[in-house]
Amino acid sequence: MRRLAVFLASSDGHDPAYAGLAAEVGADLARRGIGLVYGGGRTGLMGVLADAALKAGGEVIGVIPRSMIEREWAHEGVTELVVCDTMHERKAIMADRADAFAALPGGLGTLEEIFEVWSWRQLGFHAKPVGLLDVGGFWAPLLGALRGISATGFLAASTLDDLAVAPDLPGLLEALERRLGGAHRPAHGDGPAPR
């Protein structure tokens, strides 16, 4: 894995541990020689992640819509800042520049981004692995909801099993590496998840 796209909050959240996690992930990716692709922001967990990766000598590629630069949300100190026009372009560029995807704590934007790349994988538009960094059980409520959806038949069990989930970065990277390059193949009898 040369580059990992990380989706996470542009705010800080209520618990300072989230910022600590973002800093730890940024520094660890840099130490491992894995480039970071992220949303290009300078605030919240996004800024903490990028700053930590840069401080540790890592490559940081930010991708941000022009309108967000005009609001002064862009991180001007990254290795490369890719400017685009829309959120759709932003996600497509991030997907193109990364070898895998991971979500750290975040809100609507983070959920929307990770679900989109996961659904693209499930539909066969790419073979890049997708995962959740579940530190402290942050994603446990979401995973419970997904298991409930799977039990109703609207999400194939093989698709749910394809999502990499780990409580720490080394575990998540290992799980992503195992899936790297392997296109998602539903188990026999499983069609694509109904939409």
Rank of each mutant, 00 (worst) to 15 (best):
R2S: 14
L4F: 07
A5I: 03
A9L: 05
A9V: 06
S11C: 13
D12C: 13
D12H: 13
G13P: 02
Y18H: 13
L21G: 01
A23L: 06
A23N: 07
D28T: 14
D28H: 09
L29N: 00
L29T: 01
A30V: 06
R32W: 07
R32L: 11
G33S: 12
G33H: 11
Y38V: 04
G39T: 05
G40H: 01
R42L: 10
G44A: 10
L49Q: 00
L49E: 02
A52F: 01
A53L: 05
K55R: 15
A56P: 03
E59A: 09
I61D: 01
P65R: 02
P65Q: 06
P65N: 04
M68E: 09
E70A: 15
E72Q: 15
W73P: 02
H75M: 08
H75A: 09
L81I: 05
V82Y: 03
M87E: 06
M87S: 04
E89C: 09
K91P: 00
K91Y: 02
K91Q: 06
I93L: 14
A100P: 01
F101R: 00
F101H: 00
P105T: 03
P105L: 02
G106M: 02
G107N: 11
L108A: 14
L111F: 13
F115L: 13
E116R: 05
W118A: 00
S119C: 12
S119A: 14
W120E: 01
R121M: 09
H126Y: 07
V130A: 00
G131K: 01
G131F: 02
L132Y: 02
W139E: 01
A140L: 12
P141Y: 04
P141M: 09
L142F: 11
L142I: 10
A145E: 10
A145I: 14
R147A: 13
G148Q: 12
A151R: 13
A151F: 12
G153D: 10
A157Q: 11
A157D: 13
T159M: 11
D162T: 09
A164N: 04
V165L: 10
P167Q: 10
D168F: 06
L173N: 02
L173P: 00
E174G: 12
E177S: 10
G181A: 07
G181Q: 05
G181I: 08
A183R: 13
P186T: 06
A187Y: 12
G191S: 10
G191H: 11
G191L: 10
G191K: 12
A193I: 07
P194H: 12
